[in-house]
Amino acid sequence: MFLKRKISKKIKEGAVEWLLLFSALSSIFITLGIVFILFYEALSFFKDVSLWEFLTGRQWTPLFAQPKFGILPLVTGTLLVTGIAVLVSLPIGLIVAVYLSEYAPFKVKEVAKPFLELLAAVPTVVYGYFALLFLTPILQKWIPHLSGFNALSPGIVMGIMIIPYVSSVSEDSMKAVPMHIREGSYAMGATKFQTAFKVIIPAAFSGIAAAFIIGISRAIGETMVVAIAAGMMPNLTLNPIEPVQTLTAYIVGVSLGDVPHGTTEYKTIFAAGMTLFLMTLFLNILGFWFRKRIREVY
């Protein structure tokens, strides 16, 4: 009797362990599956189009009668919009983080933080229309040659969208700087500003760098805002007032269209997807490396 209970307990315990292990592994397998399909389809794309043409071609017109498969216009489009978003979100995000971590009285923080996080809760589609129908017309008053679809407006809006990602991770890493280091600085007669910028930010540097990288990879992967407001024109340019197309917007465009499965045109989205994946993977690895360094500092 006693033995029986012991055995059934053991079986239950073992079953739970297997279940947990399976759940944990499933996420890994799904990720690996996605990567596998991405590379498999991309590989078959490169049977039709040479890697050399893909990497160096200056035109991306896969749906034309005489298709060109140069990925560069999509990459520059992505980098251009991301660059603008980064120029907006990194400085503002950092300033917000410094304010919240070093300056803000407790009560201000209580109110400001949820509001800031609300920025991240707005659906990206709303941001897209905000860029297209609100910001672009305003910008057109200042910049006369700004086309209706352009890189600038979605770039700025995306920057605003990313501020909470940058600021909250930066703030966490600044708050993690121990109080005694802060006191050490104040006790030397440093002002709040000097303490924040000469002691706290350098001490929290790896965390802030990780926050920046999270923000950047969020911008690279962002789809809706650019699909709506940047235009759908693969354009090899770094001029922010022209329409561009990003990797993500291209994938959306083709996925929604009626390109037949199995054709080279269809496979382009996997090649574009793989390019995107490699870009964000690189950034994630960089971010992971920075985060690992945080724990070694103090």
Binding site: H180, E183, G184, M188, G189, A190, T191, V297
Partner: peptide, 27 residues
């Protein structure tokens, strides 16, 4: 700020900034 420059302080736990030795003193 200038008061704290006239009255310096050393803490219970050594609290050098996470910088080089030189930069700590140069701060």
């Amino acid at each position: 700020v200038s008061l704290r420059q006239r009255v310096g302080m050393v803490f219970q736990r050594p609290n050098p900034f996470p910088k080089s030795i030189f930069e700590n003193v140069a701060f």
